[in-house]
Each structure stands twice: as structure tokens, then as C-alpha cells.
Amino acid sequence: MIPELTADNRRFWTGGADGRLHVPYCERCARWVLPPEAECPRCDGALGERAVSGEGTVFTYTVNRHPFNPAVPSPYVVAIVELAEQADLRVATNIVDCEHDSVTIGMPVTVRFEAQPSSGETVYVPVFAPLGATS
């Protein structure tokens, strides 16, 4: 499910068109911010955006075996990935391009994007695959 695009989150959801994950960044306190917000939750500073490396590790995960959405074949992995740029910079995502039972906490992963239509625009949903996996 794609959230409604707003001025605060549009770059995060559409930035994958260039193959990079764009994350809000506060110049004032040098913090990355996810989920995207209007201003920095730490210092109330204005947020810009920067592309991150797209690499991280699986912080936690679950394997969904129940077919909640008929368009999404089960089982599938829902994970929280901690991005390499900041210890508490985490994104909810899916793990792809591997067997669901091979996912582990601490597994190194890298971002991929799945293009999806949303209200007349294309959004690029960030998903993650094991580092070194080929799609």
C-alpha cells in the first residue's frame, strides 16, 4: 500500500526513478529522518534530502504466510532495515530475491525499487535484497 503523496514524502517515494534512495536530511543537526516529515523532529530544522548508499542490514523481520492481498503471493518477508548512514535510520520494507527462510537479523542488504502506479504518478517502492544478489 502506497501512502498519499505529499510535499513532505514525494521525493522519498518518487526518487527511486534514478535508482537511488532519497531520504530527508537535517543540515542543522546532521540527522537523517524517516519516515519523511515536514521538519526535523530533533531540532525543528528544515529538511532537505540526500541520496543514501542504499545499503543496510536487517534489523528485524517476519515472514507472512497468510495471503492478506491476493496480488501478493505468500510467503513474503516484511522487514525493518537499518540503513548504513545512521544507527537509528530504519525503513519498513520487503526483502526480495531470496528464499524467505534464508533471511536473518544482521543480514547485509541493498535497495531495489519496484515501480507502482499511484494517483496518476509512478512511485518507486524501496525493497531490499541480500547484498550481492542478482535480480
Rank of each mutant, 00 (worst) to 15 (best):
V72W: 10
V72F: 15
P73R: 12
P73S: 10
P73D: 13
S74P: 06
S74V: 15
S74W: 13
P75H: 12
P75R: 14
P75K: 15
P75E: 15
Y76C: 02
Y76H: 10
Y76M: 12
Y76Q: 08
V77P: 01
V78Y: 08
V78D: 06
V78C: 08
V78E: 12
V78A: 04
A79G: 06
A79F: 12
A79Q: 10
A79K: 07
I80W: 14
I80D: 04
I80R: 02
I80Q: 03
I80P: 01
I80K: 00
V81C: 08
V81Q: 02
V81P: 01
V81T: 06
E82Y: 09
E82D: 06
E82M: 13
L83T: 03
L83N: 00
L83H: 02
L83E: 02
L83S: 00
L83Q: 01
A84H: 07
E85T: 05
E85I: 11
E85D: 08
Q86F: 15
Q86L: 13
Q86V: 12
Q86I: 13
A87C: 12
A87K: 14
A87N: 09
A87W: 15
D88P: 09
D88Y: 13
D88K: 10
L89I: 09
L89R: 02
R90D: 08
R90K: 09
R90E: 06
V91C: 05
V91T: 04
V91I: 15
V91W: 12
T93N: 00
T93A: 11
N94F: 10
N94T: 14
N94M: 10
N94G: 02
I95N: 01
I95A: 02
I95M: 03
I95V: 11
I95S: 01
V96W: 08
V96E: 08
D97R: 07
D97I: 07
C98H: 05
C98R: 05
C98P: 04
C98E: 09
C98T: 13
E99P: 00
E99C: 01
E99K: 04
H100S: 05
H100P: 00
H100M: 04
D101H: 06
D101V: 05
S102I: 09
S102C: 02
S102W: 10
V103Y: 01
V103F: 01
T104F: 05
T104D: 11
T104N: 12
I105C: 00
G106Q: 05
G106F: 14
G106V: 11
M107L: 07
M107N: 01
M107K: 01
